[in-house]
Amino acid sequence: MDNENGITLAPYLIIIFLAVILLVLEGSFFALVFLRGIKPDLLLIVIVCLSFLWGEKKGMILGIITGLLQDIFFGPAIGFFALAKMLSAYFSGLISREIYKDQIVGPMLTVFFATIMHESILYMLVSFYWGAEMGFFVAVESIFLFRAFYHFALTLFLYPIIYKADRANFFNPSYR
């Protein structure tokens, strides 16, 4: 299923399937189990890790596709999460050029900063369209940093799984 640019469709179909499962879990299972605690955005972690491995171009496409899915599920408007996830994935893919992919610290730090970037973009969009009542730095201190550390820690467990799955061509069955 390769096209002229060397982009295959299979990984994106698998990611769409994975994203639907994660979004259903986040909305129906985690939302009840975690109640008012800050819930992890597993989809963001997966997208940032994959962009880290695949580079900014594929990361950007991943971000748009999964973000649009999240918009359909939970977004107040189409494009809201798509923009935030696309930019975070692009950022992740860009900085991965300079970092070893087989060492865990790189992706962990990337997820940490990508989370802050993702939340900041959402904050700006919410502020622009509806007006945010919480100040930006209050939000960073009370929510973004906590969530970034949370994702940072979860990456320790998730990245090795994603890394091994990628090396085993799980996302690209035609190369197995």
């Binding site: 950007m60 748009i64 899915l69 359909i72 107040p76 408007a77 189409i78 494009g79 809201f80 798509a82 923009l83 696309m86 930019l87 692009y90 969009l125 369209y129």
Partner: peptide
């Protein structure tokens, strides 16, 4: 890249304004 960002911003603006009903694709999903 800039075109995609602008497109998404326009999409947010448009769908956020008049979205009491879902589109066909959203309905399907």
């Amino acid at each position: 890249f800039l075109a995609i960002v602008i497109l998404l911003l326009a999409l947010i603006n448009f769908t956020g304004e008049h979205r009491s009903r879902y589109t066909f694709i959203e309905n399907l999903v």
